[in-house]
Computed example of a mutant assay.
Amino acid sequence: MAFEPFIHFVRGIQGKMGTNVYSGLQGQNGQHVAFLRQMQKELNSDNALLIPLSELEVTVFDLETTGFFPEKGDEILSIGAIKTKGAHVKEADSFYSLVQYDKELPILVKELTGLSEEELRSAPPLSNVLLDFYHFARGTPLVAHHSNHEKNFLQAANWKQFKAPQKHRIIDTSFLSRVADPELTQNKLEDICERYGIEVVDRHHALGDAKLTAVLWCIFIENVQEKGYETLQDIYNLMAKL
């Protein structure tokens, strides 16, 4: 169906809820296990598609990674996120963390991100960062630009750390942009920002890119509302017909 590349119903931490599902959490405290169990219950009752766009709260996020292929060993280096409600960015409601990494960084990654081996060696482990991130995003859908990259890395990280797939709904910005701006041909984040007159700051920094994406998301929300669409379900129905 036409909408599938743009909105991902990532269903994880699901099915069997016995101790084997949480075997990856051995050594972590019971509060972590309880939190993941509770998060599943909340996400199972997810009704984001029906919330008016003017009231919809989402967590816009970005990952910096060592490459593009988690299945080949590439890893997450940092996670940045910021929340929006309706067409407004919640500037004070943000999240950022480096992720522990004890190998040598690819030269291109160092040049793009400005990250160093020294600061990554002293960063918190991925399992802790993921739990903190999910706590921050709790109860909201996730939004990302070119979300397949983020989805693939979160899926791989969740399975490696917790032996459970990732459950959050992940929405690609293009899900809205196809309706908000049908003539949009640019793909790169900085090019789309230029189209809308958005100053590009802190590019290739996880929080910086999340903030840029959040501004775009809010523009798209405004545009689709002006065209008469009131919920994500309305957009979903439209995309299913294309």
Rank of each mutant, 00 (worst) to 15 (best):
S127M: 01
N20Y: 11
E118V: 05
M39E: 07
S23N: 06
L126W: 04
I219W: 08
H8D: 02
I198Y: 13
A137D: 09
Y236W: 15
R178M: 08
P165C: 01
I79K: 06
A81V: 05
D234L: 04
G114R: 03
A240K: 15
A164V: 08
V224D: 05
V99E: 12
G24H: 04
N29F: 08
H205K: 15
A156M: 12
G15K: 06
I170Y: 00
A87M: 05
A214N: 12
E119Q: 14
L98H: 14
F153I: 11
G208E: 03
F69C: 04
Y229E: 01
Q31V: 15
N152Q: 13
L142K: 08
L112W: 09
G197P: 08
L77P: 08
E71I: 05
D93L: 10
L49V: 09
E42A: 11
G27H: 02
A156I: 02
A48N: 02
C193R: 10
T185P: 00
K41I: 10
N44D: 14
L238E: 04
K72Y: 06
L50P: 01
L216I: 07
D234W: 07
S177N: 08
G228Y: 08
H135D: 06
I51P: 01
A240P: 00
A214S: 14
F95I: 00
Y196S: 04
A206M: 07
Y22P: 00
Q100R: 14
E117F: 01
N187Q: 12
F3H: 12
N148C: 01
F220S: 09
N158Y: 11
D209P: 06
L25N: 01
M17C: 00
L154G: 01
E64Q: 14
I79F: 02
N187P: 00
P165M: 00
Q38F: 05
K110F: 02
G27V: 07
Y229L: 15
E183W: 07
Y134P: 01
E4D: 12
V179H: 00
A180W: 01
A34Q: 09
L43F: 06
N187H: 15
S122A: 13
W159S: 11
E42I: 12
A157C: 06
Y22F: 15
N237V: 10
E42L: 13
A210L: 10
H205M: 03
I171A: 02
R178G: 03
F61G: 03
G15P: 01
R121I: 02
K103N: 12
G114Y: 03
V58S: 13
E111G: 00
Y101T: 05
A123Y: 07
L142F: 13
P5A: 07
Q40G: 03
L56S: 04
H168E: 11
K241V: 10
F68T: 14
L154E: 02
P5D: 09
K41G: 00
T84W: 03
D172P: 05
G30F: 11
V215H: 14
I7M: 04
E230F: 10
L56G: 03
D74M: 07
S78V: 10
R121D: 04
L131T: 12
I76F: 08
N158T: 14
K227E: 07
E57A: 15
A2Q: 10
F68W: 11
E194T: 15
S147P: 02
S23C: 06
H145K: 11
T59I: 05
A137I: 10
V201N: 13
F162H: 07
L131C: 04
V129A: 11
I107L: 06
G86T: 14
L216M: 07
A157D: 05
E64D: 13
R203K: 10
L53P: 05
G67C: 03
T66M: 12
